[in-house]
Each structure stands twice: as C-alpha cells, then as structure tokens.
C-alpha cells in the first residue's frame, strides 16, 4: 500500500499511510517498554535492599541496644506481627535486643512542618513510658533554621530520654523545668513544635493499641527480616 502511494508523488510532500505511523509508534513504545522492564528488573533488588537497610539503620538509631526488628500492624483489634498477605496502611516496628528480649517500638509519624510534611520515626519504651530516640526521615524545613530539627545534636538529644506524660511540651530554650519538656530551637520555634506535635499525635493513635507490658509480640527465632514490604 505505502509503496504504491509514494511512487505516485515525491515522497517529501506526501503523507505516509496512517498504519505506518501507528506501527512506528507501537514499535518505539514496545522497545521502550522492554528497556524499562529490563532496567526495573536489574535494579529492583538493590533498591529494595537500600530501602530496607535505611529503615533498619533508622530503627536501630531510635531504639538504642536493638539488634533485631520486626514489622507490626494493628489488625482485628490487636497489634500483631505483620502477616505476609496483609498490607495495612499503618505499621510500626518492634525492636529486640540480644537473645530476642523485647526493648521497644519504633513508631513512624508524619505531620505538617513549616514548609512541607515532616516524616519522622521515634523510639518508644512502653515499660518506662518514655521516648528514647527520634530521627527525621524526610523534611523540607528552611536550611540553617528549621533543618536543625535533625542537624542540631542538642535538639535531637532532647528526645533521648523523654517521658511522654501527660504530653510532651515545647518551651523556649533555657526555660526547661520539667522532664517532659523539650527545648525549642532558637529561631525555629514552629519546626520544633511541629516535631513534638507529630509525636504527641502519633502517641494518641498508637499507645492504647499497644499490648500490655510483658505480652509484646515475640521475635520469631532465626529470622531477622523486615519482611513483606
């Protein structure tokens, strides 16, 4: 077909048959699709490993002394190890020390900061009702000011041993007079408050769902995976 038409007139000002256009595009799309699937397959394992490693590092950081962890979810009214086929919206992590001894939970939380959503992870020890560590996973706070919520060791240090009752409070730097208070960063009050508010709000969601002290989910022996991502 195409050849008959093009032989009549000079090729330059002649429209090719629509079928040819479709075939060209389809071919291009096909080759492109194969290439993309190839690169996805080639990098998939590395990417998943990177993510898992990052998560493990964060959990181990906010829960000092932890060497093993597993993912938990709130299903049917109780917090249980995440079954392989479930994909609930919200999950937390349980951290265990040597010999599978339960240490605490690492709870992810998020909420609005000064610029954009802040995502963080904090370690919580139910036995002491204390926050024992905090790590910012994602934030776009102002460089030089708001980003001190993760760059300022003194501010992060506030969360190393912080009772959560009745609630965590933010006070101006130097005015701390109670254990459940956090020193705000000078010039970044809003970001400091956002971090504390996120933790307080996440506590409200999770604390009464957690199992009683002593009956935490047990670490399955031999596995040390953040399974089923």
């Amino acid at each position: 077909m195409t050849e008959i038409i093009t032989s009549d007139k000079p090729a330059a000002d002649q429209d090719p048959h629509p079928a040819r256009l479709i075939v060209t595009l389809a071919l291009a799309g096909l080759i492109s699709g194969v290439a993309i699937v190839g690169i996805f397959e080639a990098t998939f394992t590395t990417i998943a490993e990177n993510k898992a490693r990052e998560l493990r590092a964060a959990v181990f950081k906010v829960l000092p002394g932890v060497s093993q962890m597993q993912k938990l979810a709130y299903l049917d009214g109780q917090v249980v190890p995440l079954p392989p086929d479930a994909s609930p919206e919200k999950t937390i992590y349980a951290g265990y020390g040597e010999g599978g001894k339960f240490i605490g939970y690492a709870i992810p939380g998020e909420g609005p900061g000064f610029q954009d959503t802040i995502k963080l992870l904090y370690g919580y020890k139910p036995a002491d009702r204390k926050v024992v560590g905090m790590e910012i996973l994602e934030s776009r706070e102002t460089p030089g000011l708001g980003d001190k919520i993760y760059k300022d060791a003194v501010f992060v240090g506030n969360f190393a041993d912080l009772p959560i009752d009745p609630v965590i409070e933010v006070v101006k730097k130097g005015r701390r007079d109670s254990d459940n208070q956090v020193d705000a960063i000078t010039g970044a009050t809003i970001s400091s408050r956002a971090v504390v508010r996120i933790i307080n709000e996440t506590n409200v969601i999770w604390l009464d769902k957690l199992p009683a002290t002593g009956s935490e989910p047990v670490m399955p022996a031999g596995s040390d995976e953040v399974a089923h991502d």
Binding site: I31, S32, A35, I36, I39, A42, I47, N50
Partner: peptide, 15 residues
C-alpha cells in the same frame, strides 16, 4: 526511556 533508566540507576547506586 533514557530518563527512566537514569532514574532507576541513580536510585540503585546513589540513593
């Protein structure tokens, strides 16, 4: 296609 390849490669090599 090239952008997607670059995207995944960077994600895998330098997260």
């Amino acid at each position: 296609t090239f952008v997607t390849i670059a995207d995944y490669t960077l994600l895998a090599l330098v997260p």
